[in-house]
């Protein structure tokens, strides 16, 4: 999946979850007072479902999920890692 497709999917997911949100790619979603820990886990599951891989422990920092940009960067790292070593979705 290309980076632009991933960005679009992530934006659509967040916009469905928070209808009416004025979302920019650098907006800190967690600074709005809307998101809770349940949402952070939803994001983890969504990215795993999207990329068909598991987010490794060292990438579970909240900072990787604060903005669309950060999540796209995370997705790029996971995709690159998978190219080096194919992983299996749990």
């Amino acid at each position: 999946m290309m980076t632009d497709e991933i960005r679009t999917e992530l934006r659509q997911f967040v916009e469905r979850r928070f209808a009416g949100i004025e979302l920019t790619d650098d907006l800190d979603i967690f600074s709005l007072g809307l998101a809770n820990s349940l949402f952070s886990m939803e994001l983890v599951l969504f990215i795993e479902q999207l990329l068909k891989t598991q987010v490794p422990n060292q990438e579970l920092s909240l900072d990787n999920f604060r903005t669309i940009d950060a999540m796209v960067d995370l997705a790029d790292r996971l995709t690159a890692a998978d190219r080096r070593q194919p992983a299996e979705l749990g």
Partner: peptide
């Protein structure tokens, strides 16, 4: 997990 990731 990672240190500090407990809530998630």
């Amino acid at each position: 997990g990672a240190e500090g990731a407990g809530l998630g």
